[in-house]
C-alpha cells in the first residue's frame, strides 16, 4: 500500500476515505472504499472508452460482472451505481451483441402475433427467473416476458418501462431471449396503438397547420424587448 488515505479525481472527490483492495479484471488495486466500480477503475488508472456512459444509471453502458469475497455467485450491476466492496472481483461487459431485428412499426398489429413473428424465442421462456434476479433496475423481467407470452402488451409495456437496456438479462437467459429489445417493441406497440389518445393534441396540431397562431406569432416576433417584457410580466400563471 503506497498511502492509506488519499483524495481522488475531480469527478468523485473524496477527502479521507479508507483504501480497500479490489480485483479489476483479476488484478489487485487499492481504492477508496466509497467509490463506485467506475470511479474505482479510474482511480486505479484506467481511462474508460467503452463501459462509461451517463454515469447516473440511465444508459446501460457500464455493465459489470462481479463477485463478492467468499461468494461463489456471479452478480451483475452497473459500474456507475455499484459501490466497491473489499476483495470484490469485477469485469466489464460494455457491449452485448444481441439480436435486434428490423421492422416497420406502421405495418405491425399490436398483438401477440407481432412479438411471435419478430422475437419467436420469447415463447421458449422457462420461467427460471434468472432475468429478474440479475436486473440492476429491479424490474420484474420474467413477469413481463410472461405477459408477452400471454399477449398482454399493456402489462409488458408497464412492467418494462424503467428498462435501461443494459443487456444483462439477455446474457443470463438460458432460453436465449433478448428481453430488453423485445420489451421495447412491446412499449412501442403500446404507445402507438393501444394507449388511449385524447382529443387535445390532434386538435392543436390541426390548428397550427391551419395557421391559427401565425399572426400572433408574427406580432410577438416583431415586438421590442420592452413590449415583450411587459407582456411577460402580465402573464397569468396557472396554479399548481
Amino acid at each position: 500500500m503506497r498511502r492509506d488515505r488519499v483524495s481522488s479525481s475531480k469527478e468523485n472527490e473524496t477527502t479521507q476515505a479508507k483504501l480497500i483492495p479490489v480485483y479489476i479484471m483479476g488484478k489487485r488495486y487499492q481504492v477508496p472504499e466509497d467509490l463506485t466500480i467506475m470511479t474505482a477503475m479510474e482511480y486505479a488508472g484506467y481511462q474508460l472508452k467503452r463501459g462509461a456512459g451517463c454515469r447516473e444509471g440511465f444508459c446501460g453502458a457500464c455493465v459489470t460482472v462481479y463477485r463478492s469475497a467468499d461468494d461463489y455467485k456471479l452478480k451483475a450491476g452497473l459500474a456507475c451505481q455499484t459501490v466497491v466492496e473489499p476483495e470484490m472481483y469485477v469485469a466489464q461487459i460494455p457491449f452485448t451483441p444481441a439480436n435486434k431485428p428490423t421492422y416497420d412499426i406502421k405495418e405491425l398489429q399490436p398483438s401477440i402475433s407481432a412479438i411471435q413473428t419478430i422475437y419467436p424465442e420469447v415463447m421458449r421462456c422457462l420461467s427460471c427467473n434468472s432475468c429478474t434476479k440479475v436486473c440492476p433496475q429491479n424490474i420484474e423481467v420474467m413477469d413481463y416476458i410472461q405477459a408477452a407470452v400471454r399477449g398482454d402488451i399493456a402489462k409488458l409495456a408497464d412492467l418494462s418501462f424503467d428498462c435501461i437496456m443494459c443487456g444483462i438479462c439477455a446474457m443470463r437467459c438460458p432460453a436465449e431471449i433478448v428481453q430488453y429489445n423485445m420489451a421495447l417493441l412491446g412499449r412501442r406497440l403500446y404507445g402507438k396503438y393501444l394507449s388511449k389518445k385524447g382529443p387535445y393534441l390532434e386538435k392543436r396540431v390541426e390548428e397550427i397547420k391551419e395557421g391559427k397562431y401565425e399572426q400572433g406569432m408574427q406580432e410577438l416576433m416583431r415586438a421590442d424587448r420592452e413590449t415583450l417584457s411587459r407582456r411577460y410580466d402580465e402573464r397569468d400563471i396557472e396554479s399548481g
Binding site: I105, A157, F161, R187, R188, L189, Y190, G191, K192, S195, K196, K197, G198, P199, Y200, L201
Partner: peptide, 14 residues
C-alpha cells in the same frame, strides 16, 4: 407518439 413513445396520460387519454 406515432413512433411509439409512451407518454404519461390521464384516463381520457390526454
Amino acid at each position: 407518439e406515432d413512433l411509439g413513445v409512451m407518454f404519461d396520460r390521464d384516463p381520457d387519454g390526454n
